[in-house]
Amino acid sequence: MASETSPPVRAVAASRLRRAIAVRIAIYVALTLAAALFLVPLLIMVLTSFKTMDEIRSGTIFDLPHALDWTAWLKAWSGACTGLDCRGISPGFWNSVHILVPSVILSIFCGSITGYALAVWRFRGANAVLLALMVGAFLPYQVIIYPLVKILSFLGIYGSLAGIVTLHIVFGMPLMTMLFRNHFVSIPADLIKAARVDGAGFFRIFFSILLPMSPNMLIVAVILQVTGIWNDFLLGLIFAGQANQPMTVQLNNIVVNAHGTVEYNVNMAATILTALPPLLVYLISGRYFVRGIASGSVKG
């Protein structure tokens, strides 16, 4: 009996196997193709940045450079001009660093402690505050940008480092508060009670117990804020002032508002330099980055 039924069964199994293999090959081909397409813009930027202008004019974007020529990179960093200023993009880099460090630290501090206050000490109106903050997360900057200029001018910090840092903290509040609030809500209530029986108050519970428990959340928050603030353009453009223009704004000035011959190799090198910090953060942090956008997405 068994020998009579097995050949067709085997044939079916074999054809199913062939189909499965075909499907898997198709999956890998599709994914590889997608990956290649996603890499193209980065690839041509890198290729262009190592070419001389002659090579760029005579060849195509996909031609390999003749040599690893760092001239364009050097010029992008310290020689490219915006108007009369020919210091390259390095001042923008340092401006961005100066904006980034206090903005990230302060926005995470404010967001985490507000989130903690809202999550653990659920006083009346805590949910209303949360809802009001949510609205801030959805609000396009453009809607309020002009009145904000007035407010910051009134406070005397328009066009200053303090001004732009303040705005990054303000606009970081909704996401950071939400992020930490939802994290602290998941911490067992018994733990807070135990700490209160032990005599720990509002701040000690936060600093001695909850913060040490949350290194992952802190990493996620740092990644979100570093990439978000580094990549900001509009706030930097309007509020930072001439002396503090962040790297994205200077990059745009160098590339878009250039006079005379366009130096594509220098432009591309400057673009890559600007993209590099968040890109490195992304590559190093990988999993946390995904967690960050996932948690950011759930809360808005």
């Binding site: 067992p188 018994d190 733990l191 009670k193 700490a195 209160r196 029986v197 720990a200 428990m213």
Partner: peptide, 20 residues
């Protein structure tokens, strides 16, 4: 009074040990 001032000690269902 605050919990810590009441002369009490407490053991919780989930133990509530400080994980760090």
């Amino acid at each position: 009074l605050e919990p810590s001032q009441r002369g009490i000690a407490m053991v919780f269902q989930s133990y509530a040990l400080y994980p760090t």
